[in-house]
Structures are given as structure tokens and as C-alpha cells.
Design a protein around this nucleic acid. Structure first.
Lengths: 403, 403
DNA sequence: GTTAATTAAATATAATTATAAACTATAATG
DNA sequence: CATTATAGTTTATAATTATATTTAATTAAC
């Protein structure tokens, strides 16, 4: 069947305006009815009526009176952030991270649970359910004031069905997460690929407020990108948009786990960096890591580089240059306003970011493309779980018609 | 200043519904008021009122009576395609092609003008203006029933300003096309990059009716892609989305005109194919083109391949494989539903398409990605000019709010 | 061939919501 | 303390869609 066509009706008109007002309050935070009318170009009575309704739902509250510039003092309105809460999960390769936030995304509680090796679908679902109960324990929070549960998950995710189709790092397939959690908790549940969740988190909580187009690149065990266009997560036809880890950049390069040669993640992922360094050590390069081959992981290399180890620095720089090639390809394809780099490898920002930028400067076609903003995520290891929160908030504050 | 926020109002409600009805008539072609009400879920009186208005504007007409299935015969409505017309231009490297169509995109007249070498900005604008006058000559068409002029142009185009920022093949910069033509003709003028125009044309007139996500790849002197997401042309932040000709796929590959190495268009563009064949000839490969080095161009190679020349076939196949690598990178980034290949090189479809498909089959990550539809444009050399028409039609039939 | 049922379209009335204009409340200013 | 500026509310009105009813035109059944 055709999807429902969006037609104009009184309900649409009203819900659109209510949403516009709610979002204005969210963005400006502490704004009077009169100012809402000015910025939205709605008339004062319309604003007053809808604000009254929003006050009744307790989504917003009247706070202090503002300062007057000659006339009645404005009554300032803000989101009622103490009332409503959101739960976010980040399902990684070894750990499940869960947070509880208010609707401004301020973290109230954070917990981490290890994920046992060779876990089953049912085991993972059980772990998720118990962790969701656990984080609510001893919290003075009305259960039906929890708006929803957002989940960021690596691998391929069918957002509409709410299924983790393939989670390679856990070796699991077809986990029916949404159905299971909705049945258990009777609230909104939304699951999304980790890089895409991150990118939405970056849009909501990062510097990129608004309707921008941004790309968030998650560089860790693999490399994945989340693409935001006009403020909407872009998923592609089969939920594999942004799978840039397997972008071919050097057809004569090393063999990748996918079977092809020269994929981006054979150069710039965490494992690739470790391999690259080990190989140099075997070739006899001198380094402070020379006799510690078994202890080497990404963090160790980063610390060595910080301590001044030239080989470690060079290896990280090289990874940055390759990442820059991939990023430039993305700029020439998606041409976003801003690119945010996150994930484990982005920890080594001092040694990565500059070489990414230099590579873009060198390779990008036009001056404007060269000036594409490239930053490191400010959320560090919390990027995915904040993105999971953003999934629910994006839905809560969505404008009618913009699915 | 902030862009205007979209708020609900009676005008919006009405114009949304009018647009929904108009588009329903356009898509279904020959549909009764009652059926419109059913498919749109608008009520019959609403439909009747808006249909009355649309009849008054002469945008639609009542045609025959349909067949009854027990009851009054339905009055069928269609677009009044004989009344309104659109002009489309394709500004290529050597020729200006111009067509006049009705609002169903049916071509009424087509003309081609050569573009002199070393033309100036003013010269090109003059040529455009005279060609637009010329195509209207001897046509029984009401001047103010021409809806607009669409222009597809290679290079980088600033759609909002209506300026061709950089047209490398004509060696021109900053041609203020929109302003000049709007001043001369007082009607809607829209200019767009050729690949993006093509992609919109493919969406409107090709197999891909609807709100799909498709990518159209123009393989000629360069390689450019037009990306359509949710039925909207996607341009990127600096109008360079889809510039995949300079996607790095082989960092150790040949040097490109852009200064980098291993760009896609050093392998799969028209000039790259010609160079590649000439090189093989020099190396002594036998071919029916062996002593005709000066006559070789894309068309000659294609004809040779058709005539059974093995070298020509191999060269075209190889280009197809490289193109397939680029296309697979696109699938892993944008993940569209359908990919359409057009431009000069796509003429050699017998020798290109299969190797593109094989490469995707070999390299794509998931089964669903492997099944991405890849077709050759059915418009051939008319792809850009049909896209230019689509630019205007897309605007005419746009839903309010979806800019 | 008359009548009932069905479908299409128009019309009249009601309901919903935004808008405009008038009004009340409150504060700063001189 | 009057004047003026600003915030917010009330009332009346206008622009629409929605609902219910009516008219028209057919087909199908008896």
C-alpha cells in the first residue's frame, strides 16, 4: 500500500504550530510568549493558546519573570526537564553502556555492564532488560514520564523493524530488539546503527544545533559514517549508507576482511594501526614499544606517541592521511557542512586530526570544499550513547510531516 | 537572519491540499474527484472545491466520462498538457541543445546550436537568449503559458544565485545566467549541474517515478553523479555533492588533471578510455584500430568493439570494472535504490554495464547491496535536457514546505 | 419497465483554528 | 503621576476542512 499522503487539516495546522513553539522553547530556552510570536511569526493569541496546552501536558513550565524594557515583565518559558527522562543504550563489542538523562540530554546516571563472550540473542536481550530496570532503581522518576529507550548498536540495523540484522563483533544476527523491549516496558523504543546514532547526537548536543548536514565518522575496530541531511538521519535503501570502512581507496592495497583489497579500514582503523606498527617493529624500526609487542593496542600506541615515540607518531599520522583520503572522497560525494570524527582512534586526536586536515587541503577540489569543518567529537566514548538519547528526542521534537 | 519557520496556517493547509490533488491527477492521469478523495483521504467536498479552482487556472481539464460500476459515471480529470509548456537547455562543451515540451515532458520541438570555441560569458548568454527566442518561433503558444526555463550545465553551479560558478570545458567562470534570462524573459529560470539535472529527469520521466532515492552517474569527459534523496535533488553544502570523478580509488594510480593520483576519472571517463587504448596500441597490441591512431575517439572505439575488436572490448570492459568500483563505493556511502548510468560512455552499454554489475556483485558488502538496480539511462544524449525540463516541473508540482 | 441499490458530485451546515483588533496588566521613564 | 512601551488575554471574525444531506446518474434485480 501507498504510504499515507500528508494532507492539510486542522489537526496538522495545530500540531505543526505546537511543534514549532515547543522547538522554539527548546532551542532558545527561557523565552516569553511575545518573543515566540516574534520569532515564529505566529500571532500572540495562537501562541498563548498552544502554550496553555503545553503547560497542561507539563512539557514546559513557566519559570522566572524576565527583565522588562519598559512594560509588563515577560513570563519566561522553558522545557520541564526535571519531569521527563530518556534512557540510552550503547551496545558495544564488550560492554553495554546505559544512561538516564533529562530531556535536555543531561546525564543523571550512567552504568556499564560487561557483555559475556559468545552471548546469544536471548542473553543480550536479557542483559538489556535487566540493565534498563537497574538504571531506574532508586530514582525518583515516574515510570510513565520516561519518554523512551534509544539504542545505538554496531553493524547493520533495520530501523523500521527494530532489528539488529547483523552485529559482526558479537557474532549475532537478527536480534528483535524493538519488539522485545516494547513488550517489556511499553514505551517507545528505537534502535539505530552506532555511527548514525552518533551523528544525530552530534547534531543535537554537539556544536551543530539546527538543520545542518553533518557527517560523523566512527573510527574504531571498523570505520562507519553517519550522514545527516537537513537534520534527518539518512539511512539509504538497505540501511547501509555510510559503510565507508569498505570504501576502496587503493585497489592494490592490502587485503581486507571483506575479501576485497585496499578498503579504507585496512589503513585507518584501530586494528590496522596496530598491525602497521607491529610490522614496522618486525622490520627493525626502533621505538619505545620495541620489546612489548604483546601489549600493543591503540591506547598503548597513543601513549607512546604522547611520550614522544617517533614511530608511533608516524604510524598515527599515516593513518590520519589515509583517513583524510576517505574523508575527501566523502566531501566529494556528500559534501557536508561539518565532519565529526569519533570512536576509539579519535582519542589520538593530536596525531590524527592535523593529517586529516592537511590531506583534505591537498586533495579537495574547490576552495570551499577545502574549508569543510573537521572536528573531533567532544563526547569521546559517550558519543554513541548520547546519540541513542538523541534518537528519542528527535522523535519527541519532530515536526509533523518530517518523518 | 534565520530562514522563515514553516508554521501552520489556512493558506498552508489549502495549498498543501491543492498540491496533493494536483499531483494525484498528474500521477494517476484520468482520475475522478471521488477517486482522488479516496486515495488522498481528503473529503469529497474539499476535493471538489480545490478541483474547481484548478479547473479555473486551466492547470487541469475535465476529459471523458469514465466507466461506471453501478452509478453515475465519474468525470475524469487530467493535466491540461496542451496549454502549458516548458523550455529546457543543455549547455554542453560544444553544443547548446534546447527543447520545448508540454507539462508531461513530451517534446514538441528540439534545436541544437554549436557553441563557438573560446566563447565569452556574454557570448554564451546571447546564444542562450537567441536560442530561446528561436524555439518559440512559429509555435502557437501563449507566451505567458510557458512555465519556465530549465538549464542543465556542466561544472559547478550555484543554484540559489543562479550562477555557473565554474564551467571547465568552456573555460568560463561566474556566468550570471539566472539574472540575465529572468530579466529578458520574465519567467522562472532554474539552472543546475548537468548530472543533478539528469538525475531529476530520470526520477520524473524514467522508470523511477515517485519519492525514491536514485543516483545518476554521468560518464563523459568527466564523471559526475546526481544524487536524489526522498525525491529531492541533494546538492551538498558547496554544490559539489556527487563530484565522484575525483574519488580516489587507487592511490598509486595515474595522475589526474586535478593533481592527485588514482581518481576515478583517470580510469573510466571517455578521455581515459581513449588514452588507455592508444597506450595499448603503442605497446603493440593488435587491433582493427592499429593504424588509425589519429581518428580514435569514444565512438570509434565503441564501433570497433561492436565489430568484434578484442582490444576495444577489453578496454571498455576494464573501464566498466573501474566504474564498478566507484559505483560500489557510492553504494556503500549513499546506498540508493537505483543507479542510472548516462553520458557519452554509457552509449557503449553492451561492454560497460555487465562489468559494472559484476564488480558490484563481487565487491558489495551485503546481499541487498549487491542487488542494487543498475541501469543505463533510456534518454541517451537527451538525458540532461530532459533533466532541465524536470527542474521546472519539480518546482511547479512541489509540495509546500518541501523546498 | 419499474424500483431499489449504488456511485458521483454538489450543497448546506458545523466544527476547528488562526488572525485581527481591542483590551487589560504591568513596568519604566520623565 | 501621567505617559508610553511591552506582555499577555479576550472577543469577534475569517478561512478552511469535515459532516451530513441532497441531487444526479447509472446499473441491477425483480
Amino acid at each position: 500500500m501507498e504510504p499515507n499522503i500528508l494532507t492539510g487539516s486542522f489537526q496538522l495546522m495545530k500540531s505543526l504550530n505546537r511543534s514549532v513553539i515547543l522547538n522554539t522553547i527548546r532551542k532558545k530556552g527561557g523565552i516569553s510568549r511575545a518573543d515566540i510570536a516574534k520569532t515564529t511569526k505566529l500571532t500572540p493569541p495562537t501562541v498563548s493558546n498552544l502554550v496553555k496546552e503545553l503547560l497542561e501536558t507539563e512539557m514546559i513550565i513557566e519559570t522566572s519573570l524576565g527583565v522588562s524594557s519598559g512594560g509588563r515583565k515577560p513570563t519566561l518559558l522553558t522545557l520541564n526537564s526535571d519531569m521527563f527522562h530518556v534512557i540510552g543504550l550503547d551496545i558495544g563489542s564488550h560492554h553495554l553502556k546505559i544512561i538516564l538523562t533529562d530531556i535536555n540530554g543531561r546525564i543523571r546516571k550512567k552504568q556499564i555492564h560487561p557483555i559475556p563472550d559468545s552471548i546469544t540473542n536471548e542473553g543480550l536481550l536479557d542483559l538489556m532488560i535487566t540493565s534498563i530496570y537497574a538504571i531506574q532503581k532508586n530514582e525518583q522518576i515516574d515510570r510513565n514520564k520516561i519518554i523512551g529507550i534509544g539504542i545505538g548498536m554496531h553493524g547493520i540495523v533495520d530501523v523500521d523493524q527494530g532489528v539488529s540484522v547483523f552485529a559482526p563483533n558479537l557474532k549475532l544476527k537478527n536480534i528483535g530488539i524493538k519488539d522485545a523491549l516494547e513488550k517489556e516496558f511499553q514505551m517507545v523504543v528505537q534502535i539505530e546503527n552506532d555511527a548514525r546514532a552518533m551523528s544525530l547526537g552530534e547534531l543535537w548536543f554537539g556544536n551543530g544545533h539546527g538543520d545542518d548536514s553533518i557527517v560523523c565518522i566512527n573510527v574504531g575496530r571498523g570505520i562507519g559514517a553517519g550522514i545527516i541531511i537537513n537534520g534527518q538521519v539518512f539511512r539509504g535503501e538497505h540501511y547501509i549508507s555510510g559503510e565507508i570502512g569498505h570504501m576502496a581507496i587503493d585497489l592494490n592495497g592490502p587485503k581486507c576482511t571483506c575479501g576485497n583489497y585496499g578498503c579504507l579500514q585496512t589503513f585507518a582503523s584501530g586494528p590496522a594501526i596496530v598491525e602497521s606498527l607491529k610490522k614496522e617493529l618486525k622490520l627493525g624500526e626502533s621505538s619505545i614499544l620495541s620489546n612489548k609487542e604483546n601489549e600493543i593496542d591503540g591506547e598503548v600506541i597513543y601513549q607512546a606517541a604522547l611520550a614522544g615515540d617517533l614511530l608511533s607518531k608516524n604510524i598515527l599520522n599515516k593513518a590520519g592521511r589515509y583517513l583524510g583520503v576517505g574523508v575527501t572522497n566523502l566531501i566529494h560525494t556528500v559534501n557536508p557542512k561539518r565532519i565529526v570524527i569519533s570512536g576509539g582512534v579519535s582519542n589520538a586526536k593530536e596525531f590524527i586530526l592535523e593529517s586529516v586536515k592537511k590531506t583534505i587541503e591537498q586533495r579537495a577540489l574547490t576552495d570551499s570544499a577545502k574549508q569543510t569543518e573537521v572536528i573531533i567529537s567532544k563526547f569521546g566514548a559517550d558519543a554513541t550513547v548520547m546519540g541513542a538519547i538523541a534518537l528519542i528526542l528527535a522523535q519527541l521534537f519532530a515536526t509533523p510531516g518530517n518523518t
